[in-house]
Design a protein around this nucleic acid. Structure first.
Length: 297
DNA sequence: GAAGACCTGCTA
DNA sequence: TAGCAGGTCTTC
């Protein structure tokens, strides 16, 4: 369920809650496949006693930078999420893993569908120097600063910080159906089904179009649309939709505020906010896709 | 490119 | 009770 804005929201909340800098005193693995291919006992042995120095993100992966060699990479997949408790450990119903941190703070990984994954990796993490933005609570840009960010090998540039030049370079030589391309994490990392549909609507591009058919102007429009919807999602604290148990909630159990901003995803049959024609629902790249056949060309 | 696998729980 | 879900990986 969570895409980049939801993961980024969780990352910021974990930082704000003071998780960084704490030592991992004890690890509990309740669902062994969460840490595959390691066994829970090997995983615990490698992580216990390490300091959690910093929390980063690349695409939909959270990167817990530990002292020493490896980093802990967490992918929430469809239903993963974190919450914090203080003091005596009380296991929640869908908890799959728990980190007991110094100072009595417990970091619970809740994941009803058990798709989430925790990996210990040293060699897949590289570094990139990036321009980051400081943003106020109401979403206004305060300033820019340069930061050394870990990058996961095999993932494309992060959808929140991707530059126009990187985006165009990533498009080079591609000729994929646009919907499939946006979902391809090696193209741009962090876009999932919701934001792919929203970005294509924002760009007024037909999701069935091939990327090779885009003019330079359309490529630029797509770049602006992707970064715009991702940034809007982050600003609003993520999206959650009122269907099914996969509903995203943040660290505090709050639903994402981006829900009301969604223009096409989950609105099949309802009128397009631009032209009023009913929105069309279909399958593209084996994923539910909603778009306006009238506005998106 | 497409289908199946991994999973649970909510909705129709 | 069947069908469906925001993600990714493996196997045709």
């Amino acid at each position: 369920m969570p895409e980049l804005p939801e993961v980024e929201t969780i990352r910021r909340q974990l930082c704000a809650a003071g998780v960084e800098g704490r030592t991992i005193e004890k690890v509990h693995i309740e669902w062994p496949r969460t840490v595959e291919p390691l066994t829970p006992s090997v995983f615990c042995k490698q992580v216990q006693g390490r300091q959690l120095e910093k929390i980063d993100r690349h695409g939909k992966w959270l990167i817990f930078r530990l002292d020493g060699k490896e980093n802990l990479l967490v992918h929430l997949r469809m239903t993963g999420g974190f919450y914090l408790t203080q003091g005596a450990l009380k296991e929640g119903k869908h908890d799959r893993a728990i980190l007991q941190l110094s100072g009595g703070l417990n970091l619970h990984f809740r994941d009803p569908r058990k798709f989430g994954r925790w990996k210990l990796e040293s060699d897949v993490v590289g570094h990139a120097s990036r321009i980051r933005e400081r943003v106020s609570d109401d979403g206004h840009k305060l300033s820019e600063y340069r930061e050394d960010c870990p990058t996961i090998v095999g993932l494309g540039p992060d959808a929140l910080t991707v530059t126009k030049a990187e985006f165009f370079q990533s498009l080079e030589g591609q000729n994929k159906v646009l919907k499939a391309l946006l979902l391809d994490q090696s193209f741009v990392a962090g876009v999932g089904n919701i934001y792919a549909d929203e970005a294509l609507f924002e760009a007024r591009l037909d999701p069935r179009r091939k990327s090779g058919s885009l003019s330079d102007a359309e490529k630029l429009t797509l770049y602006k649309a992707v970064t715009k919807v991702i940034k809007a999602g982050v600003r609003n604290g993520g999206t959650s939709l009122g269907d099914g148990q996969g509903n995203y909630v943040d660290l505090n159990g709050e639903a994402g505020g981006h829900r009301e901003k969604v223009k096409v995803y989950g609105r099949a049959g309802q009128p397009c906010v631009v032209c009023g024609h009913p929105l069309h629902k279909t399958q593209i790249a084996q994923r539910t896709t909603v778009f306006c056949t009238h506005c998106q060309k």
